[in-house]
C-alpha cells in the first residue's frame, strides 16, 4: 500500500504531488475513467499533460520513461491506462496549449 494513500486521498492527487518534481510550468491530470466500463468513482484511466523544461533535448521515449519511473507504483497498481503528453514549454506554446483527446474505449480487458 502506498504510504501517501490514506482515506480521502485520491490517486489523482498523489499523481499531482509526485509530478511536482518535474517543476512543471503546466500540469493537467484528468481522470478519464468515466469513459470506460469501470465502477463509478474509479481512478484507472488518466490523461496527463506535463510541461517541463526538464524534457528539453530528450527523446519522447526518454521523457515518458522519466514519468513512468516516478509513477511506477501507481502504474503497477491502480492505473490501467495512461495517456501521457510530455512537452517542453516551447513545444507547449507552439501547439497552442492544447491537451490531445484520448481515443474512445473499445471494451476489452479491464484488468
Amino acid at each position: 500500500m502506498n504510504p501517501i494513500m490514506n482515506s480521502g486521498t485520491t490517486v489523482k492527487s498523489v499523481i499531482q504531488v509526485k509530478l511536482r518534481r518535474f517543476a512543471p510550468t503546466h500540469l493537467e491530470v484528468v481522470n478519464e475513467s468515466f469513459m470506460h466500463s469501470v465502477p463509478e468513482g474509479a481512478e484507472s484511466h488518466f490523461n496527463i499533460t506535463l510541461v517541463s523544461e526538464q524534457f528539453a533535448g530528450k527523446t519522447l521515449v526518454a521523457r515518458q520513461r522519466m514519468v513512468n519511473q516516478v509513477l511506477a507504483e501507481e502504474l503497477a497498481g491502480t492505473i490501467h491506462a495512461l495517456a501521457l503528453h510530455t512537452l517542453t514549454p516551447d513545444e507547449w506554446f507552439e501547439n497552442g496549449g492544447q491537451t490531445p483527446d484520448s481515443p474512445p474505449c473499445l471494451g476489452g480487458s479491464k484488468s
Binding site: 519522447l60 515518458q64 511506477a72 502504474l75 491506462a81 495512461l82 495517456a83 503528453h85 490531445p100
Partner: peptide
C-alpha cells in the same frame, strides 16, 4: 521496461506507445 500497451517496434527498436506514435 514500458508499463503500457500498445507498443510499436520498428527494425528492433522500441518506438513508443499510442501518445508517441500519434505525436510522431
Amino acid at each position: 521496461n514500458w508499463p503500457t500497451v500498445p507498443q510499436l517496434y520498428v527494425r528492433g527498436e522500441f518506438v513508443g506507445g499510442c501518445d508517441i506514435v500519434t505525436q510522431l
